[in-house]
Amino acid sequence: MHGSAMSGWLLMALCATTGAYCLLRTRGETGEGRRTARAEALMGFGMAAMAVPAAVVTPPAWAWAVYAALFGAASLRALWFSRRSGHHLHHLVGSSAMVYMALTMAPGGGAAAHCGHLGHGVAAAGGVPVLTGLLLAYYAVYVLRSGARLIPVASAPVPAGGGPAGGSWTTRPEMALACRLTMGMAMFAMLLAL
C-alpha cells in the first residue's frame, strides 16, 4: 500500500480498538449476537495486524498463507451461518475480501506491497482491478448505509436515569453500528490502497 507510516499506525489503532470493543461485546451477547460480535472482533484484529507499518514489522512470507487460511475458514463459517442471518453475508464478503488481499499481497501474489503496511513496496497496484472495484463499491455503499442507520439510533432520547437504555455500554446498539461503520471505512481504505 502507498502512504505514510502514520496512516498505517492510525488504521492499526482504529481496527485494534474496534476489535477489542467487539470482543467485549461478546460478554453481553448471547447466541446470534455473540457469534456476530466474535466475527467482528476477528475482522478487527485481522485488519489491525495487516495494518502494522512495515518499518516496524515485516511479516514473514508464510504470514500471508496464515491470513488466507484464517479468513478462508471465517468465510466458510459466515457462509454456514448466513442461513440464519443476512448479516453473516456481510461477514462472508469481509472475510473473502481479507483472503483476496492476503493472496494479492503474498510474495509472488501480484504486488510487493503489503496490505495495510502503508509505505511498503514499489510495485504496481496488485489484485484484479474489477474485483477490487466491486469490493470498493460494496464497502462504499455499506459505509453510507451504516452511517445513515447510525444517525437515528445515536440521536434517540436518553432514558430518565441517564444511563443506557439496554444495559451496559457494551450492549448499546449505536456502539455496534459505529464499530461496523468503522470497520467498513477501514476496509475501504485498505482496498483503496491495494
Rank of each mutant, 00 (worst) to 15 (best):
P60Y: 07
A65C: 02
A125M: 01
G184C: 08
A37C: 04
L23S: 10
S96C: 07
Y100W: 14
M43G: 08
A165V: 09
L177M: 15
V153L: 10
H88C: 11
A112Q: 13
A49I: 00
A13E: 01
A68W: 00
A65D: 02
P173I: 14
L192P: 01
T30G: 03
G33A: 01
A73S: 15
G116A: 04
V99K: 12
G147R: 14
E40Y: 13
L118F: 09
L14P: 06
A137W: 10
M12E: 04
G33T: 05
R38S: 00
G126F: 05
Y67I: 03
C179S: 14
M12Q: 14
L10P: 00
A154I: 09
A106P: 10
L70V: 09
A41E: 05
A61L: 03
Y67R: 04
V122C: 03
S155N: 12
S7C: 10
M47P: 05
L194Y: 08
A65Y: 04
W64G: 00
G161M: 03
R77Q: 08
A189C: 02
A65L: 00
A125W: 01
R172N: 09
L10M: 12
L42N: 05
M50S: 00
R35H: 00
L150H: 12
F71H: 07
H88Q: 11
L192S: 13
Y142Q: 12
T182L: 10
T170W: 14
A74F: 00
R77L: 03
G161Y: 09
A63R: 08
M1S: 14
G31Y: 02
T182E: 02
T132P: 03
S75N: 11
G28P: 03
F45P: 08
G161H: 15
G3P: 06
T182F: 08
A37K: 14
A156Y: 09
M183G: 07
H91W: 06
A78P: 06
L194G: 15
R149C: 07
A111H: 13
M187R: 13
V128Q: 02
M190Y: 08
T26G: 04
A176S: 15
A106N: 09
S85Y: 11
A178C: 13
A73G: 11
L194C: 13
G121Y: 00
L150Q: 12
M187A: 03
H87P: 11
G108R: 14
C22W: 12
T30L: 06
R172S: 07
A63P: 00
E174V: 05
R38W: 04
A106Q: 15
M187I: 03
A51L: 00
L150D: 10
A176F: 15
G28N: 04
V143H: 12
L118K: 09
A140R: 14
A61S: 00
S85V: 06
V57L: 07
L24P: 05
A137M: 05
G110A: 13
G3C: 06
R83W: 08
G147Q: 13
M105T: 13
A124H: 05
H117S: 06
L181N: 05
G147H: 11
V66T: 01
W80F: 07
M105R: 14
S95L: 01
G166P: 05
S85E: 04
A78Y: 07
G166E: 10
A68F: 01
Y21W: 06
P129W: 00
